[in-house]
Write a protein that binds this DNA or RNA. Sequence first.
DNA 1: TTGCTCCTCACGTCACGTGAGGTGGC
DNA 2: TTGCTCCTCACGTCACGTGAGGTGGC
Lengths: 223, 223
Amino acid sequence: LHYYEEIGLLKPTARTSSGHRLYGRDAIERLQQIKSLQQLGLSLAEVDALICGQAISPRKIVADHLAEVRAQREALDQLESQLERLARLLEGGETDDRAAVEVFLTTMEAMTMYDKYLDSKQITRINQKHAAADAAAQAAWNAALAALRDELQAGTKPTDPKVRDLVEQWHKAAAAFVPDDDEATHEGLMKVLHEEPKALEQHGLEPELFAYIGRAVDPQSHS
Amino acid sequence: LHYYEEIGLLKPTARTSSGHRLYGRDAIERLQQIKSLQQLGLSLAEVDALICGQAISPRKIVADHLAEVRAQREALDQLESQLERLARLLEGGETDDRAAVEVFLTTMEAMTMYDKYLDSKQITRINQKHAAADAAAQAAWNAALAALRDELQAGTKPTDPKVRDLVEQWHKAAAAFVPDDDEATHEGLMKVLHEEPKALEQHGLEPELFAYIGRAVDPQSHS
DNA sequence: TTGCTCCTCACGTCACGTGAGGTGGC
DNA sequence: TTGCTCCTCACGTCACGTGAGGTGGC
């Protein structure tokens, strides 16, 4: 209240001889106006412009503010769903706090990585599919990768039918985790895996193994 | 970036002989972590607690923040609809800025008054009904009030059948503006009119006229 | 020599909140 | 005399941004 006086918004109606502030009806009404306008999210500078009769169009101020509030709310909407996503990912995790922080930071990193290549709808769909996938699908994925790793270490050529067969199995296992009706999602995921080595790591894939699979699918590829 | 250093969040990996800061891979990774956590809406103090390994449960932090963000978003939702309401009310109004400010402040005042007695759903319904009402309904309302005002000035007793008949007409006109299927809305509106003289004024009713109508409806009332 | 970036230090932002130290009215 | 509220003045908040004035590297 003293602050409003300092910036010239609200003057006490009078002062007692000892200096105490006295507020009359008019001052109280003005205070209520100020508070109402503030509740709309207007800054005190804007409130001042309106109340002190700077002849500014209130329609414009309200419209501008509405646009701003809409933008903020949309940002908060997005933030909310991101936090929900994060909360779900952390749900079953570590109970030890130090380890949990590790997981947390890694998860965050993964999320920002995926956000670079996929939009929020695509990510939501991937998460849904991922949550719906059962343990068997996970096991199949791991088994295919382990077998491929063995072939890589044994020096089997990527063009070998055995390898191609394993890659085929791996693809089938992957299909349980990824929506299969959207080409853009597929492309985005492949981009992540190609350009972010850390993303490979988080899925239990070494870059060498990924390159090996790549050569099995497309023998012309050089990477 | 200098600020992060000041509060001890991020140290440059090294300095050149002339004092220029050099940031290595590790510092950049840390910076990305900081930025990610900030984007989630965490304060730098919380980021510091997480990153510097104060062993704080990230699940709790995320859950707390999610609750906070939800509350903020709900507040913004409400603010948004309030601003929309205000924008609609100002839509057809004054083009002169100074007069518009008057209307604006009066409208604001009315809105805060109604908000004290009715919840947002009730207000939305009233506004819908109000917007749907045609000019004839408005004319009927005005005519009934004008006739009642004449009877009051002529000294007709409120118990007179003529007056009761006019009050009946006024009630019918009012029904065009107010949802008729919710008792609570009715009660709230009556409370506003009884306790806020300014609300009466905004509807073109003097307190004396309102009291006169009150006596016509309920002769026992003393006010 | 001329720009250029980087340095440090300090102050401003926004709407208050919180003391420190003092005084008037009951 | 004892609490109580009110006064003024000044500094803190949060995450920087923006100068002022200076210096190193090309």
